[in-house]
Structure formats: C-alpha cells, structure tokens
Design a protein around this nucleic acid. Sequence first.
DNA 1: CAAGATTGACTGATCAATCTTC
DNA 2: GAAGATTGATCAGTCAATCTTG
Lengths: 161, 161
Amino acid sequence: MAPSWHDGGVEDDEVITNWGLIVEAHAAVMKRVAELDNTDLPAPFFEVLLRLVRTPGHRLTMSQLAHEITFSTGGFTKLADRMEAAGLVVRVACPNDRRVTWMALTPAGEAAIGEILPRHIASVRATVLDVLGEDALADVGIQMRKLRDSINGPRREELDA
Amino acid sequence: MAPSWHDGGVEDDEVITNWGLIVEAHAAVMKRVAELDNTDLPAPFFEVLLRLVRTPGHRLTMSQLAHEITFSTGGFTKLADRMEAAGLVVRVACPNDRRVTWMALTPAGEAAIGEILPRHIASVRATVLDVLGEDALADVGIQMRKLRDSINGPRREELDA
DNA sequence: CAAGATTGACTGATCAATCTTC
DNA sequence: GAAGATTGATCAGTCAATCTTG
C-alpha cells in the first residue's frame, strides 16, 4: 500500500485524481456541447435566456440572474447591455422597489432560446446521456446535488440547467 | 408520467437537470476551493505548476501545457510571460527541435507549488471527499473518466488534477 | 447604513496573422 | 506546406467606487 499522512484514510492522490476527473470531464463536455450546438449565441446569453424562459412570467431581477450564472453584478450589467442591444431581453423597472430592475424576455429572446434549446438538448444527450446511460447519469446527479447543496444550500425551486 | 418527444426514452428535463447539476456543482466547488486555498497565486499559475511538478524532469513544452490546461497557444504564451516574470518558470530552448520551447520549474516555482499544494489538497478533501465519501467519489470518478475519454480519448499517462 | 445597479480602470483571455523551423 | 510559438487587436470579465433607493 502507498504511504499517506492521513492515517488510515483516503489517499491524497486518489482524491485529487477524482476531483481532477470532474474538472476535466466538465471542460471536455462543455467544449464538445458548444461545438455540437453550432450556434453563434454566446454561452452567457444562452444561460440567461434559459433561466428566463424557465421562469414563470419570463423575468428575473438583475441580481438574481447574476448570481445564478455566477457573474459579478458589474459584469452582469454589461452582459445585460449586450443582450438588450441584441433585442433578446428588456430591462423593466420594478414598481415595488425602485432599486431593482427586472430582466424580461422579448419575443425575439423567446424565439432565440426556442430555436437553440432543442439542438442543445440533443447535444447534451449525445455527449453525456449516450455515454453514461440513464442510471449512471442519475447517480452522478445525486452526488453533484449533494456537492452543490453542501455549498450553496438547497434551492427553493429546482431550476437546474 | 410526463410527456416526451423521445418515445420510451429518458426525459429531456432529466438529462438537462442532471447535466446542470454537474455544471453547478463544478462551479460551486471551484469557488469554495479557491476560497479555502486562500492564496494569491492565480488559478492558471497553479494549474501549470501542478503539471510541471508532477512531470519527471519538471518540464513540458508550451503546446503540451497549453493543451492540458485548455488554453489557446496565444493565450498560453502570455501566461508563460507572466509566470516567467514572476520567477516561477523558465523557458528552455529545445536542442532537438528548435521550434519547440520547454517550460521548466525554477526553485521558486517548486517552492510555490510545494507551499500551496498541501492546502489545496486539504481544500478538496474538505469540499468534496468529506461530502461525498470515498466510495461515491470513486464512482463519480469512474463516470467522469468515461465522459472525458469519450471526448479526448484515453490518456497515455494519468496526470489528472 | 444596507442593497441593487451602474460605471471606469484594469486584467486576462481569444482569434487571426506572422515568423521560424521542420 | 505544416507545426510550434509569438504578436497585435479585440473582447469580456472582475474589482472598487459611486449613485440611488429602501
């Protein structure tokens, strides 16, 4: 057996290797899916549109969206500028609290996500589901949810993407 | 049961949700580990140093390193500039093929990775291993290797990180 | 004074084009 | 001509500071 400074525990190499596999698999799948998607829509645009279209009312606040796609608020403001310039979303003032700004889908935004999403789903199916199979993917999902929730806390509503 | 346009197959939502969990867990862990590492060493620096220190001779070519950390060659040249300016690595001309440049660890680079790596391992243990447990993490690793290898092809040597 | 959003300065990556060497 | 590395132009993100509203 190999030596370790964790008496009786798991090898460091094993932990680092397995975490490394998650990182590498994530990067490889992201890249492949982007190729298969074959779209000119920037990835952050897609992330935003997806979350908006899956939300009742098709609108979320700037802060909420920024957090969900793990952007800084400053970075998200500029992303919002670009998406609004592209006609995919509009800013809507919040009447209740005049500090907050809603981001809402435009018809063009709905059309864009409606056009890309089926291809994206096909890409993920081909890259992930067809390789792992249904059961293994479900098992991985369970573990990943544990990881996520141990850090972010469980979600009030499931809006994974 | 819910409807699907994949007759008898897996639901789209299920696939997208599970893949989304991988993406979110990856992002959350990356962020948390970075916090726990508590280092001023930029992440790409760490990635490069780690691969160098784990390589016999402590040297790899620019292209090879660029590919391993999934950088463009142009981007890696500039990363190498910064790391060399920081005294962590040196470029070494290859005598056999004068097109290639080796990147080699300096003593300062060895010291830097030697100092951060134990903390990093502890961060990953606390964030990943302690949450999933040894067996579940190993299972996830198996699936992630399948994903990676189905895209990149199996590695000649295991150098995960 | 805290929270949401924006702005400006800066950093770090990509891409396409170029240079050298095989 | 192809491969490895570099360069210049550009782009998209962070961070710290600011403004407004609660």
